[in-house]
Design a protein around this nucleic acid. Structure first.
Lengths: 185, 185
DNA sequence: CTTGCCTATGCAACTCGTTGCATAGCAGGA
DNA sequence: TCCTGCTATGCAACGAGTTGCATAGGCAAG
């Protein structure tokens, strides 16, 4: 389980409430680790009980109070220990690949609209990534001047960009194959 | 839940027992959909109760009897209906990305051996993919002569190959970044 | 003025998925 | 001969993750 660790990283980068964390997981962090607000609240309570994070009640006017969490030293130590553990191989769940192989037993053309929709989503995500990269990591700043945190965020973002580029190229390959199969029958 | 559908595809490609399916999920299918034998047995029983698959007891000598499952017409229909449903966005769980961002709050050099180990695993997987491609999809056969099933299997495999190539290049980028950070301190 | 959305947290029930263990015969190596 | 490992299935318990719902005030659009 790495949700605890993903939350710790996010809180070390900036403290926040459960709600704020949930929104971060919908945005930047969610690109490589998804979580619902339910899970985040539950895990935060457990982490607070374990002393990994500290909570501070913050009154707000015009909206409900919130509990702002920040990482505590035991949490930092747990994160450091986790970094030294072996990386478990990722469990892959690539639904589209299953569907593509399934299309052989049905009409391959039926899959084309869904793949096109899927492709659009990836193209939009790539755009957002590239936009974020231009905004947060302008090319004209010398790399030495950037701190470790930002450089590591950038290398993760570059991974996301390359993943989306590769996926788009592959989806074009998939679409070409499906269209050929749809024609030649 | 798409495990049912992954099992159906696998059984349509070739009937087999729960045990055989579990091994397929460890090999080719497992590249894009993982499952333990426990889950496969449980889901197979449910699918049999729903009429999606049929089971046939096969006595073997020298080893225990097995139940060989094959896809039934209602399963095929369910698969066709599923093909027309919208593709849910994949839930991403990229543990290594979390660790890389976590490294900013600890010693980035501590992560290098794990990333190297990870890289080796991906390089080995790429080798296996390329080997399987040369074996199952030789380049000298005219594409028209190949049936839909094989062409779709091939396009999924090409996706795996491109994913591994991209991942290797990215991991080199990650290692270069980590090494620079480890030196410049 | 009502409807819907946003902030903010949480309970309860459920499904999905993993882990540990059990059985049981057979094959191969130390 | 004993030990390990493979084939083949399964139970039981647990943990991870999702879904539906609830509360409760404020804000903005129609």
């Amino acid at each position: 389980m790495a949700l605890e660790h993903a939350i710790l990283v996010s809180l070390l980068e900036r403290p926040g409430s459960g709600y704020e964390l949930a929104r971060r997981f919908d945005r930047s962090i969610g690109r490589f680790w998804t979580a619902t607000h339910q899970q985040i609240y539950r895990v935060l309570r457990r982490m607070e009980a374990d002393g990994w994070v500290r909570a501070e009640e913050v009154a707000q006017d015009g909206r409900p109070d919130k509990k702002v969490y920040s990482a505590a030293p035991p949490g930092r130590e747990a994160l450091a220990a986790w970094l030294r553990e072996p990386v478990e191989p990722e469990t892959v769940r690539h639904e589209l690949a299953v569907r593509i192989r399934a299309a052989a037993f049905d009409d391959p053309a039926a899959l084309i609209p869904e793949v096109e929709r899927h492709r659009e989503g990836h193209a939009a995500l790539l755009d957002r990534y590239l936009h974020g990269e231009r905004r947060d990591f302008p090319a004209d700043s010398p790399p030495e001047a950037i701190d470790a945190q930002r450089r590591l965020q950038h290398v993760v973002l570059r991974g996301g960009i390359e993943y989306e580029r590769m996926t788009l190229a592959w989806l074009d390959d998939v679409l070409a194959t499906l269209r050929e199969l749809a024609e030649g029958r």
